[in-house]
Nucleic acid binder design. Structure first.
Lengths: 155, 155
DNA sequence: TGCTAATAATCAGCATGCTTATTATATCGA
DNA sequence: TCGATATAATAAGCATGCTGATTATTAGCA
């Protein structure tokens, strides 16, 4: 056991991989073209109609550039509308279209249901424990992505 | 709380994101150009000199195509040598170069050390618990990525 | 007010990660 | 041994995810 298999980083990568694969399978079974990332964005916009891209990126911890691309695709599929903000011409304001709402209604129970499958091999207590620990540590590690531990040193 | 924030998928994505960011920070601080994925591959090759790409992909749960690209970059940086297998001309056999070994020696303690930081906000008991649960569920969910739950239906 | 600094979005560029398809080579069974 | 099948690697194509740069716009301050 001189290796990576017990490392948090590796295990988390693996579990994320499993999670994404399960999501893809379920959506395919449902005949729906939607990635986990797209679902999260759509769901979050639905909860905050009129939110701007930057704020949304913060809310669901996506990189702003990445989110731009995600919204592109959601817009192209007709699930999201993107408009210039009336109060800030730099910002783009997002809303879920009717078609997006229909999709959400259809897909939400499937997504809720599949969460349990991601944590396969665990009993209910263990799942709850794991979830609680994940929540605790992600909350603590909050600004880790776009706010580097070390200050931007270049210049 | 009508949302994604308590979902396993979202939390795991976040934690992976945090993990990758911490790794990148530490490597940058070390003046080393190495991603988590590249480190895992290099470390695994070092543990199994002469392993072929397909077998390595299986060992560390990487997609075979993805691994091809990872090895490309490790080879280009001079950390890994790739040769046609003497027993199977389809296969490419991998070994860590001297330079790769030096890098591993230098970076391994840093990687080991950073694992604890990924699980910030947890005490030692909680970290051990989370690690054990992650291990248990990833072991159970093993074939989830390249072995779909539903059979390939197209055609 | 006018200039500077910050912010929102986007672009280019690179690394994962996966799918489908293609090529080269092995393997297995008739 | 030949032929169908399987396997190893790679290519093309798309979706995340991040960095650094650029443009447009806003905010803050002298």
């Amino acid at each position: 056991m001189v290796e990576i298999y017990n490392m948090a980083g590796h295990l988390v990568r693996r579990l994320n991989q499993i999670s994404v694969a399960i999501f893809a399978d379920r959506m395919a079974a449902e005949g729906v073209e939607l990635t986990p990332v797209q679902f999260a964005a759509l769901s979050a916009i639905d909860a905050r109609p009129g939110i701007a891209q930057a704020a949304l990126a913060g809310a669901i911890a996506y990189d702003q550039t990445t989110l731009g691309g995600v919204i592109d695709r959601l817009e192209q599929k007709g699930f999201v509308a993107r408009e210039v903000s009336p109060t800030d011409r730099r910002a783009r304001v997002l809303t879920v279209t009717r078609s997006g709402q229909d999709l959400l209604a259809r897909v939400r129970p499937v997504v809720r249901d599949l969460q349990g499958d991601i944590l396969s091999g665990l009993d209910e207590d263990e799942k709850a424990q794991l979830l609680a620990l994940l929540k605790k540590t992600t909350d603590a590690g909050n600004g880790k992505s776009r706010a580097p531990l070390a200050p931007r040193d270049k210049r």
